[in-house]
């Protein structure tokens, strides 16, 4: 979409005004500074998704819309998890992070902050696998997506 003030609120407003759900929404500028790119994760029947696509296209600030889920695509989300890292947990948290290919990016004598990237379900699985008592804080970016191969969203 056009990299204009207010473009984000038009999209967010559309979803709330028409009762569509947003599971996540990410937005950032692109290599073309006049454009920004948004990935929205939403759920609905085929009819609802069709309406959402049309309604998004109708917004003047929206330049192009693709439904990534229609074909092969890659979806990634980044999560930071702060966990307890005292006593027996210190070794356990390191091990879990390694299994899920996480990286410990901040260390104190009581905590680790683990960075993990992957599809949403992988991040969910990591949180499932951790002892609930060990989780102090989580923050997730929401998904970013891109088509596989030569499926390219560009002007």
């Amino acid at each position: 979409m056009e990299n204009e003030a207010g473009a984000l609120s038009r999209v967010a407003g559309l979803f709330s005004a028409r009762g569509y759900n947003i599971e996540s929404l990410t937005v950032a500028p692109t290599e073309d500074e006049t454009l920004s790119r948004m990935t929205i994760v939403t759920r609905g029947s085929d009819d609802v998704i069709e309406q959402i696509t049309k309604q998004l296209n109708k917004l003047i600030d929206v330049v192009k819309v693709v439904d990534l889920s229609e074909a092969g695509h890659i979806e990634r989300e980044l999560m930071l998890v702060k966990v307890r890292a005292e006593g027996e947990w210190r070794e356990e948290m390191k091990r879990m992070s390694d299994i899920f290919r996480g990286r410990i990016v901040d260390v104190t004598d009581k905590t680790y902050t683990i960075e993990l990237t992957g599809a949403g379900y992988k991040l969910d699985a990591f949180l499932e696998a951790l002892d609930k008592g060990a989780i102090l804080e989580t923050v997730r970016t929401g998904a970013s997506g891109i088509g596989r191969g030569d499926r390219i969203l560009k002007l």
Binding site: A5, G6, S9, R10, G13, A17, I60
Partner: peptide, 14 residues
Amino acid sequence: MVGITRPCVKHNFL
């Protein structure tokens, strides 16, 4: 005004 009218205009500008 841009916020208030957003859902009831074709488009708006500040």
